[in-house]
Design a protein around this nucleic acid. Structure first.
Length: 594
RNA sequence: GUCCUUGUAGUUCAAUGGAUAGAACGAGAGCCUUCUAAGCUCUAGAUCUAGGUUCGAUUCCUAGCAGGGACACCA
């Protein structure tokens, strides 16, 4: 426990004791940051909350609480004030600021280690890519949320397992295989059949031979393959036959399947590694797609599900107030939900998971609730162990300013790589016109572009739809990731200069920048809030707040000159620490200078 | 039709049931012989409607209006 939190805990326990003595059993004491600084550094509304049950006017109760607090003489508090209608506003002294800075500069153990979720294992499924399409902005948002949440949960002490599922079998993959076979022939003599292909693979194109990225290569194959099945019933038959051949483990079909998927994974991995993606485990549909049926049969025996006249199996979710859904088709084959039941049990057992999270689009929300209910009925876990994290669509801003869904068919689908590359160009142009002396490496440009993109997505509440304007959506000034990175490079430069001037950082109770320091103190509080909400935008907004406060201070104060240099450079160090930690959770890396 | 979700300055977004609804972009006015002006300071500008609960509602409840999504053998 760090020193600064102990101050709050002490205040809290004094109030708690006071209210208990008055007859309130286990009172809840809340603190919040007032809107305006004149209302103090922190504030509690306990008096408003309990005045009625104690039969006292709120301001009177507040006064009594303040008297009790004054008796204790807490060093770090300068003053308490009661404000109508009954708030108790607390003003910290500079001693408090000194403690905050000491805590932060002491490093990891003292300040950062949260034990809130210690001992818990969370499994978080995110970014399950579609093997036959290049990844677009929807996947980007999924990935940023999934990776961000897993870092946030880790920061709160949980053991986190990140996983994803590849839907690597079925009709869509067969279309992809056909598209490759029929349309990626390098010479006209190549025959579009599997047998021929296995003997003459060099007569087919690869991403390298066409000089295009693997994901684009795969997308093209799929689009052409699908078009063929639509226009020609014979091809459609043939593709369906490929699915059967695959299920019967036909060696040649499996070989083609592996070859095509290898391109697919190559493309996916290239894009995702750019983003800093990490999975601890990948589930492949072909490994478990049959297992779900047994769970459904077991449920039938227990009378949880019922078999319809045509042989299909239906849920009974009346007690959950959910619409029923089919678990097994009338031909006995399985559906998404069938496989997900098995997968959920696998996940839970493999990691002995306490909580399971799915980061998946909002269109799945009904299906997710059905899945969770069925899993509870089958005894796989409690419904409260399962959480769906939906997120709003990423669309395109239309001519009329309206939100339009992206569609690869209309060519309005924006790919992740395309976006990153465009933003890099934009930043480079901005930089070139800015009369700076330093030059930016390509690595720096990539870092900056990713910072701008990640921040602009994560600062938005995840349930909001985003209408993307390709020309202006990624801000490089103002409320942006670039603004924060720019500020960090200012901090870096100050720290370097302080080192060469031999200024030893040392927090002082006489120091200034108190508003900034008090906002640094809120880091843990923000993490806790974000963690309970499973939401990342509070962290983004917090980082912005710290940055803005620093820049205002920086503009008004000469940091490396005058009195108190040691204190001021301690503030600078602590600010950098907090900003880097916050950005770290968002998956944003920084540049040394820009 | 039922269920879920969203509605806040011109625009893009904030706001744990709290106090004077915050930022950014855009608009207007200033600030570089001094630590990085991608910065700082100031000005103008908003809670979809109607009820209710509460000391207090952008937030919770009810009913509307408007957008988006889901609704049984697709993936």
């Amino acid at each position: 426990m760090n020193q600064s939190s102990q101050v709050i805990n002490k205040i809290s326990s004094i109030i708690s004791t006071f209210l208990s003595n008055k007859g309130i059993s286990s009172p809840e004491i809340n603190f919040e940051k007032p809107e305006v600084a004149t209302y103090g550094d922190t504030s509690t509304s306990v008096a408003l909350r309990y005045a009625k049950s104690l039969g006292l006017a709120p301001t009177l109760l507040a006064e009594e609480i303040v008297s009790a607090l004054r008796l204790e003489n807490i060093n770090e508090v300068q003053d308490y004030k009661v404000e109508k209608p009954g708030f108790i506003n607390i003003y910290f002294s500079n001693t408090f600021n000194k403690l905050v800075l000491e805590d932060i500069l002491k490093g990891d153990n003292a300040y950062w280690d949260s034990t809130a979720l210690k001992g818990q294992t969370w499994v978080i499924e995110h970014t399950s890519p579609n093997p036959n399409k290049a990844m677009h902005l929807g996947h980007l948002r999924n990935n940023l949320i999934g990776m961000g949440l897993s870092r946030l949960l880790e920061a709160r002490g949980a053991t986190v397992v990140r996983d994803a599922i590849y839907n690597d079998r079925g009709i869509a993959i067969a279309k992809l295989m056909w598209g490759y076979l029929a349309h990626m022939r390098a010479t006209s003599e190549a025959e579009p059949n599997i047998q021929y292909w296995t003997q003459n693979k060099d007569k087919w194109h690869s991403p390298e031979s066409l000089s295009i990225p693997a994901d684009i290569f795969v997308s093209r194959c799929y689009v052409m393959g699908e078009a063929d099945t639509k226009s020609s019933p014979e091809t459609d038959q043939l593709v369906r036959g490929m699915v059967l051949d695959w299920e019967n483990q036909d060696a040649n079909t499996l070989e083609l399947w592996r070859a095509v998927l290898a391109y697919s994974y190559e493309g996916i991995n290239k894009t995702l590694s750019r983003l800093g993606n990490k999975w601890d485990n990948i589930w492949y549909e072909h490994e478990h797609y049959k297992a779900g049926k047994e769970y459904v049969e077991a449920g039938l025996e227990k009378g949880i599900f019922k078999r319809l006249d045509d042989g299909a199996v239906l849920t009974n979710l009346e007690s959950y107030k959910l619409p029923d859904t089919i678990l097994l088709k009338n031909d006995g084959s399985s559906l998404y939900i069938t496989q997900d039941i098995a997968l959920t049990d696998l996940k839970k057992k493999k990691w002995n998971a306490d909580r399971l999270i799915w980061v998946i689009g909002p269109d799945q929300s009904n299906a997710m609730r059905q899945l969770y209910a069925v899993c509870e009925q089958l005894g796989i876990g409690k419904i409260s162990d399962f959480t769906h994290i939906p997120y709003g669509y990423v669309g395109i801003k239309g001519e009329d300013g309206e939100f339009k869904k992206m569609s690869s068919r209309d060519g309005t689908s924006v790919l992740i790589d395309e976006l990153v590359d465009n933003v890099k160009i934009k930043i480079a142009e901005e930089f070139a016109s800015s009369s700076k002396e330093i030059s930016l490496s390509d690595t720096d440009l990539e870092t900056l572009a990713l910072a701008a993109i990640k921040f602009s997505i994560l600062k938005i509440n995840r349930n909001q739809d985003i209408a993307f304007d390709i020309n202006s959506s990624i801000a490089v000034s103002g409320d942006s990731g670039i603004y924060i990175l720019y500020t960090i490079s200012r901090l870096n430069s100050l720290i370097k200069k302080a080192e060469s001037d031999n200024i030893i950082p040392s927090p002082s109770a006489l120091g200034n920048a108190s508003e900034l320091v008090k906002s640094l103190y809120r880091y843990n509080e923000v993490l806790e809030f974000a963690g309970t909400e499973l939401s990342l935008n509070p962290i983004a907004h917090y980082a912005m707040e710290v940055t803005t406060l620093f820049n205002s201070w920086y503009a008004a104060e000469s940091i490396l000159n005058g009195d108190n240099k040691e204190h001021k450079i301690a503030v600078v160090l602590a600010t950098r620490q907090i900003l880097e930690k916050s950005l770290g959770i968002l998956g944003i890396q920084t540049v040394e200078s820009m």
